[in-house]
Amino acid sequence: MERKPRRPTRVVEVGWVKIGGGHPVVVQSMTSTDTRDVSSTVAQIRELEEEGCEVIRVAVPDEAAAQALREIIPQIGIPLIADIHFDWRLAVAALKSGAHGLRINPGNIKGRENVRRVIEAARRAGACVRIGVNAGSLEKDLLKKYGWPRPEALVESALRWLDFIVGDLGYENVKVSLKSSDVWHTVAAYREFSRRSDFPVHLGVTEAGGLLPGTVKSALALGILLSEGIGDTLRVSLTAPPVEEVRVAWEILKATGVRRRGVEIVACPTCGRCEIDLIGLYQEVERRLRGLKAPIKVAVMGCVVNGPGEAREADVGLAGGKGVGLIFRRGRIVRKVREEELLSAFLEEVERFLAEREKEPQTR
């Protein structure tokens, strides 16, 4: 099955980052620091930037957090979105402090008049607004109508608020999310919304869980949607350090063929044929190459069955055997080394490959 073309959507702007309309799918995350702690928040955002985070969201639970944005924003290099719940006045304060966008759940802002106040402030600031519909905080009338947060209820909520914000208030710098902790409800909601609207969508499975279960749930739901051409920006929500969210997000984008950044590592599973410390070798390769931003595919293989074939398919690959190993570059054996030299020789070839690729003429 081939990945479908991206769904045509409108273009919205979060600061200087364009979302939708064929622009690259944007990776987001959210800080876990107390926003009022400026130094810790800035440090975490800078770490996330290094990992490939392109838009950051921070919690704004009170006025002090809103005011802290005045100090945070000048010290970071990516647009900042203020996460607002319950109190519309915090949205206004965050925008005055320089926030490039807002995430609001209209269901808990309490009333159209308060939502109107938020939108008018966003209009003055030129900020993007995400309508964040969530299964855990759906409007009471929709819960009564559907009995529980069905995908159809999430879609109706999103369309209702779009009709008010875009139709009645005339504000179009808007994107939408429809999140559930259930994989299939999430997929169904995004599919139906995308069938009925051309506004860009922010993908995510809410409350997905810890690093392993959250990664599996997010990869399944987001992988399905991205393969169907649905999705303009995404966050992988994990009960884990935010840096892991960004790493998983990029792995999903690479696996679906939507975007490439950094290293893609192909590695064989361990088995009785393996005669080298493959797990240790893999972990060290992953650690040493983690900081690379240039897209490159490498292979770390441990036996003679599939090893040479997979290694040949990578930009740079290694195939280990008893006491020796082969290094491949773009299908060609370039070195045969002793096992104890395998890691250093492999890393040297990666450096050479990247340096030579830099000199290659760029095709448009």
Rank of each mutant, 00 (worst) to 15 (best):
E13F: 12
V183A: 09
I81Y: 06
V27D: 06
R10E: 12
E71P: 08
E156R: 11
N108Y: 01
A91T: 00
R46D: 04
D87W: 13
G147I: 05
A68M: 10
P269K: 05
A294D: 14
C53E: 03
P242V: 12
A267W: 09
G111K: 04
S237I: 00
T233K: 03
M301L: 12
R261S: 01
L138D: 02
P213I: 02
D315P: 06
V236D: 09
E244T: 05
E172V: 13
V133W: 13
C274V: 15
V11E: 13
A122H: 10
V243T: 13
E348N: 11
I104E: 12
G231P: 04
P308H: 10
R117P: 08
A240T: 13
I56P: 06
G231E: 06
S197I: 03
E360M: 13
V129T: 09
A99G: 12
G331N: 10
W161Y: 15
T239Q: 03
A82S: 03
R10N: 11
R112F: 15
R273K: 10
K175E: 07
R312K: 15
K297I: 05
V11F: 01
A189F: 11
V92I: 09
K175H: 15
A345M: 06
F199E: 04
S194P: 02
I73Q: 08
L159W: 07
V305C: 00
N306C: 00
V166C: 15
G317C: 09
G317T: 11
V324N: 14
L234G: 13
S177W: 01
L95K: 10
G22Q: 08
E156T: 01
R112D: 14
E349T: 11
E286T: 05
G309T: 07
F193G: 12
R116S: 14
C128G: 11
E244L: 08
G320N: 05
V38E: 02
T41L: 06
T33F: 10
R338C: 07
